[in-house]
Nucleic acid binder design. Structure first.
Lengths: 177, 177
DNA sequence: CAATTATGTCAACATGGCTGACATAATTAT
DNA sequence: ATAATTATGTCAGCCATGTTGACATAATTG
């Protein structure tokens, strides 16, 4: 543990407050707080919460995602996931398909309805990001992307990179199973 | 509500998936997920959670912050705050001082112990940010700051700007009251 | 003196995390 | 072939942290 210090006492030994990136720490907090507030308002109209948002987002973005992979991405337990996933399946936003190679696996897909919800939730977030890029006069958006990617634990960056190049497959409510 | 569409159907009317900033949306999710994981590990050793972290962070950064202001920043109810704030006061990380002008108000200060904890929690986050800036080759860190600030709701940006220029006052466990 | 304000507190409830235990079906290893 | 492992599901209960509503107190303001 770190025995911290202020300017006046035990100089040199420990963390000094002015060496800490407080500004960026707080900016991340505030930016994320408001970034998540947009979809929250929409979700409550559906009787869903933030947990549903995360699930439907990643299933939409990574069609055919398996349950174990989703757990890795969300960093929650299967029992936590089960609750919200069941609701999303029961209400027709997500469907499960038996894995073609390994029939124990369940591939997850959004339905048309689920796709529409995922887009509706992403839209205000997307608008906020665009407006911020413009307002901040970001000429090279790649800088932002590189910075945020570098904030992710190196061993978990494969998850970031696994996103589809284009919009992936989607299963209609009626199709397959 | 937004009737969303894919490439093939009802063109022009609605949101197209490839117009959405999915990459940055996900990067924000992943970056924030790992950004908060560092302090979480430390907090659990103290029997505290993320809610305690937020309180002790803002009280450390804005010495003399009043309860109502803290509620505005955290966007939670006073009943939610009361639980964690009481614990932090009872365990000697935060003290309350009666407002000098208005004696109904309670100014919040970290104790020496609270200051040390706030720094210990901020340290890994600060390291992560520095490493990310370097790894991403960010030459002008102001770009990142401007972007994140622009992500905050305009009417709430005063909260962002209210941070102290230097390290603010702190009250020792014994002093005042 | 009345109304308003800042704060605290009690009670009840919801969401979304967690652990532990156990069940099933399918795959893989011996 | 059978045993072990794996992917998933499910039951039950607990915890942290958010919510609403109601009410209390003290201090300030009109």
């Amino acid at each position: 543990m770190n025995t911290s210090t202020t300017q006046s006492e035990e100089p040199g030994t420990a963390v000094k407050a002015d060496e800490i990136e407080f500004t960026l720490i707080e900016l991340l907090f505030f930016a994320y707080r408001d970034f998540t507030s947009d979809p929250d308002a929409i979700l409550s109209q559906y009787g869903f919460g933030r947990a549903h948002h995360r699930v439907i987002h990643f299933v939409n973005r990574r069609p055919g995602l398996r349950v174990a992979e989703l757990l890795d991405v969300l960093r929650i337990t299967k029992q936590s996931l089960a609750r919200v996933l069941k609701q999303l399946i029961d209400t027709g936003y997500i469907v499960q398909v038996q894995g073609p190679r390994d029939r124990r696996q369940r591939e997850l897909y959004v339905t048309k309805k689920g796709h529409a919800l995922a887009l509706a939730l992403a839209l205000p977030q997307s608008r906020r990001i665009r407006a911020a890029l413009e307002e901040a006069g970001v000429k090279d958006r790649a800088v932002i992307e590189r910075f945020l990617r570098a904030m992710v634990n190196p061993e978990l960056r494969a998850q970031v990179d696994r996103a589809p190049a284009r919009e992936g497959a989607r299963i209609e409510g009626e199709a397959r199973e």
